[in-house]
Simulated scan of single mutants.
Amino acid sequence: MTVILCFFFAHWFLSLFFHTFFLHRYASHQMYTTGTKREKLFYFLTWFTQGSSFLIPRAYAVMHRMHHVFSDTEKDPHSPHFFKDVWHMMIHTRLMYNNFLTGKSLPDPEFTEEYLPVWEKLDKFGDHMVTRIAWVAVYTSIYIAFAPSAWWFLLLPVHILIGPVQGAIVNWCGHKYGYSNFDNGDHSKNSEPFGIFLLGELFQNNHHKFGKSPNFAKKWFELDPTYQIMRFMNFTRIIRLKKA
């Protein structure tokens, strides 16, 4: 049981960290700069931690930029206010994501003008069905070896879909439940105190007000764990935070 719990929480928080640190705060918003080699390292670690649910950064970034411009309108790729449940929202988001990747639909130029990280070889490898199935086999093998009972296998779908699951929680809860510090003209909320489990991502109301700020916490009682890590990385010159 200890091994499974350690594996689950390690996978959850490592995947979540690179989700918010690289996909969100770098690919989507360019909140910091870094060297070419470090960018590729962060890119690789995003793939490695998301595994079977790897989200290609350029597609993620385009959709997230659209989310900010069209927040909680019919053009928003994932507003919970236009779907009867979270599953329909996730399916709609995935279809739009796939259309951008395949070229079936093209985003407006305003969403691709700012820098988008691209690593075509890793994207092709990470997005390949064989690679995704291999990750599923790895997760399943760990559970076969260490799960104390069959009930623990109910956690496997979370591992397999960890990126989309985390994104769905943020977009659903962060635009439906919680409090607002600012009037942004949308339904964005700060879903605290549960945000600690999403490493700052549930400060949606704050983030929609200050879209370029790397610190999602704005009140004295709010804490953005990812920003604190980024401050340390800035201090050690691994990254350079931009002034919002």
Rank of each mutant, 00 (worst) to 15 (best):
residue 203 F to E: 00
residue 51 G to Q: 04
residue 146 F to N: 05
residue 88 H to S: 11
residue 218 K to N: 09
residue 75 K to S: 08
residue 232 F to A: 09
residue 30 Q to K: 12
residue 228 Q to Y: 10
residue 190 N to V: 01
residue 70 F to G: 00
residue 67 H to M: 08
residue 209 K to C: 10
residue 83 F to H: 04
residue 9 F to I: 12
residue 130 V to W: 10
residue 43 Y to F: 13
residue 140 T to R: 03
residue 142 I to C: 08
residue 140 T to P: 05
residue 49 T to M: 06
residue 118 V to S: 14
residue 6 C to I: 09
residue 142 I to L: 11
residue 42 F to K: 00
residue 20 T to W: 02
residue 127 D to F: 10
residue 11 H to N: 10
residue 114 E to G: 11
residue 123 D to A: 09
residue 87 W to K: 15
residue 205 N to T: 14
residue 178 G to M: 13
residue 48 F to C: 11
residue 98 N to L: 13
residue 158 V to F: 14
residue 46 T to S: 02
residue 60 Y to H: 04
residue 109 P to G: 07
residue 224 D to K: 08
residue 207 H to T: 02
residue 220 W to I: 08
residue 143 Y to P: 00
residue 91 I to D: 10
residue 21 F to K: 00
residue 190 N to Q: 14
residue 61 A to R: 02
residue 91 I to M: 08
residue 171 N to T: 02
residue 23 L to P: 00
residue 135 W to E: 01
residue 131 T to L: 12
residue 163 G to M: 06
residue 116 L to E: 11
residue 14 L to P: 01
residue 199 L to M: 03
residue 120 E to V: 06
residue 23 L to E: 06
residue 2 T to L: 13
residue 243 K to L: 10
residue 70 F to C: 04
residue 191 S to I: 01
residue 202 L to Y: 00
residue 33 T to D: 14
residue 158 V to G: 11
residue 188 S to V: 09
residue 240 R to E: 15
residue 202 L to E: 01
residue 102 T to V: 02
residue 72 D to T: 04
residue 98 N to Y: 12
residue 211 G to C: 13
residue 143 Y to S: 11
residue 119 W to D: 15
residue 141 S to G: 07
residue 15 S to E: 00
residue 66 M to W: 07
residue 74 E to N: 10
residue 68 H to A: 14
residue 33 T to V: 11
residue 14 L to A: 01
residue 151 W to A: 15
residue 33 T to R: 09
residue 20 T to E: 04
residue 175 H to W: 05
residue 56 I to L: 12
residue 4 I to S: 02
residue 199 L to Q: 02
residue 21 F to W: 09
residue 180 S to R: 15
residue 39 E to S: 13
residue 34 T to V: 12
residue 194 F to L: 12
residue 202 L to Q: 04
residue 64 H to I: 07
residue 69 V to H: 15
residue 107 P to C: 11
residue 221 F to P: 04
residue 106 L to A: 15
residue 196 I to T: 12
residue 218 K to P: 05
residue 58 R to S: 14
residue 232 F to H: 10
residue 188 S to Y: 02
residue 129 M to F: 15
residue 4 I to C: 07
residue 51 G to S: 05
residue 200 G to E: 00
